[in-house]
Amino acid sequence: MVLQSGSVGITIMGKTADLTVVQKTIIDTLHKEGKPQKVIAKEVGCSQSAVSKHINKKLCGREKCGRKRCTSSRDDRSLERIVRKRPFKSVGDFHKEWTEAGVSASRATTHRRILDMGFKCRIPLVKPLLNNKQRQKRLTWAKEKQTWSVAQWSKVLFSDESNFCISFGTQGPRVWSKNGEAHTAARRLKSSGKFPQSVLIWGAMSSAGVGPLCFIKSRVNAAVYQEILEHFMLPSTDELYGDPDFIFQQDLAPAHTAKSTKTWFNDRGITVLDWPANSPDLNPIENLWGIAKRKMRDMRPNNAEELKAAIEASWSSITPQQCHRLIASMPHCNEAVIAAKGAQTKY
């Protein structure tokens, strides 16, 4: 190995090594100044051949080695169409359908091509199904609220029920999708039921923080819901707002929209925010449920009392700053609904 004096080039057994980033930069600069290649080579400390190859964009280092690729770009495109058409299938199913189409490739090659395309095997997102009427109502709602500021959203007390289970069972089949595509195609979404059988909890949040939790032991009808409002929602407003100037948010569950519930709100002069159906992605408290459940991943309660204690500890650890950030995202959430023309969003 010989180092050339006054240069950064390295000569190994008569052959010039790959150019460094500094050398390439100097070559580009001198070439733009109109210097001949012989002068550039002497200045940089490498061979004139290396300079010529770099200027002509032919310097690519070591030649590619290994077996010749067994599939063409056309074959790869056909595999991508298969994966996009049936994203819930396994690699074995993709390989079988691909080979039946006349492509000669192993299962390992099939898996490798799928990964090269950017697909990953994920747990499918759970989103409510939306019909055309519901999408249109969501779009109309988002456009009406498009001018709302963060200060206006801060006056809203968001509420919701959520299910917490003692057992963290299997999460069902996985789905193949690329980054950013999890929310864009209905065939990649997993439909959710509205009333799964599990422990039910009611909670509320505002930009100032979270309110007390209510553990519901019976079926939620209008009477039970009004008891929750009386003993948990009203104390939450006193704690989080300190004045009656707030707007209450709830979804369109039957107990929430019952005539007696509407009368309960009217008698107390509480303004209820109009809300589109099947729209949990518009409610920032859904993110808090997710935060609370993630904090409980390492917990394995053995009974209802341990589960309740774990939930309360996780819920109480949520900070006002987290709540404020979620409320501040509402304008962006509205924009996402409008961009999706009322369909599901990433929120």
Results as ranks from 00 to 15, higher is better:
Ser73His: 08
Ser73Leu: 13
Asp76Lys: 03
Asp76Gln: 11
Asp76Val: 13
Ser78His: 11
Leu79Phe: 03
Arg81Ala: 15
Ile82Trp: 02
Ile82Phe: 03
Ile82Arg: 01
Ile82Cys: 05
Val83Lys: 00
Arg84Thr: 07
Arg86Gly: 08
Arg86Ser: 09
Pro87Ile: 07
Pro87Leu: 05
Pro87Arg: 00
Phe88Glu: 09
Lys89Trp: 12
Val91Asp: 04
Gly92Asn: 06
Gly92Pro: 09
Gly92Met: 05
Asp93Asn: 07
Phe94Pro: 06
Phe94Asp: 05
Lys96Glu: 13
Lys96Trp: 13
Glu97Val: 10
Trp98His: 07
Thr99Tyr: 02
Ala101Trp: 04
Ala101Phe: 05
Gly102Thr: 03
Ala105Phe: 05
Ser106Trp: 12
Ser106Cys: 14
Ser106Asn: 09
Arg112Asn: 14
Arg112Pro: 07
Arg113Cys: 07
Arg113Lys: 12
Ile114Asp: 00
Leu115Trp: 09
Met117Asn: 03
Met117Val: 02
Gly118Tyr: 07
Phe119Val: 03
Phe119Lys: 00
Lys120Asp: 13
Cys121Met: 09
Ile123Arg: 02
Ile123His: 03
Pro124Thr: 06
Pro124His: 01
Leu125Ser: 06
Val126Gln: 10
Lys127Pro: 15
Lys127Arg: 11
Pro128Gln: 04
Leu129Glu: 13
Asn131Ser: 11
Asn131Ala: 08
Asn132Phe: 04
Lys133Val: 11
Gln134Leu: 15
Gln134Thr: 14
Arg135Gly: 11
Lys137Arg: 08
Lys137Asp: 10
Lys137Tyr: 14
Trp141Cys: 12
Ala142Met: 07
Ala142Lys: 00
Glu144Gln: 10
Gln146Ala: 11
Thr147Asn: 11
Trp148Gly: 01
Trp148Val: 00
Ser149Ile: 00
Ser149Ala: 03
Val150Leu: 06
Ala151Cys: 14
Ala151Phe: 09
Trp153Glu: 04
Ser154Gly: 06
Lys155Leu: 15
Lys155His: 12
Val156Lys: 00
Leu157Thr: 01
Leu157Arg: 02
Ser159Lys: 01
Ser159Trp: 00
Asp160Gly: 04
Glu161Asp: 05
Glu161Tyr: 01
Ser162Trp: 04
Ser162Met: 11
Ser162Arg: 01
Asn163Phe: 13
Phe164Pro: 01
Cys165His: 00
Ile166Cys: 09
Ile166Thr: 04
Ser167Gly: 06
Ser167Leu: 15
Phe168Tyr: 11
Phe168Pro: 12
Thr170Gly: 13
Thr170Arg: 01
Thr170Leu: 13
Gln171Cys: 14
Gly172Gln: 07
Pro173Leu: 10
Pro173Met: 07
Pro173Trp: 06
Val175Trp: 02
Trp176Arg: 00
Trp176Ala: 04
Ser177Tyr: 08
Lys178Gln: 12
Lys178Asn: 08
Asn179Cys: 13
Gly180Val: 08
Gly180Leu: 11
Gly180His: 09
Ala182Asp: 12
Thr184Asp: 09
Ala185Ser: 12
Arg187Ala: 07
Arg187His: 09
Arg188Asp: 14
Lys190Tyr: 12
Lys190Cys: 15
Lys194Gln: 12
Phe195Asp: 11
Phe195Ser: 11
Pro196Lys: 00
Ser198Pro: 06
Ile201Arg: 00
Ile201Asn: 01
Gly203Pro: 08
Gly203Leu: 06
Met205Gly: 05
Ser206Met: 05
Ser206Tyr: 02
Ser206Asn: 01
Ser207Asp: 04
Ala208Pro: 15
Gly209Val: 01
Gly209Arg: 02
Val210Pro: 04
Leu213Trp: 03
Cys214Phe: 05
Phe215Glu: 09
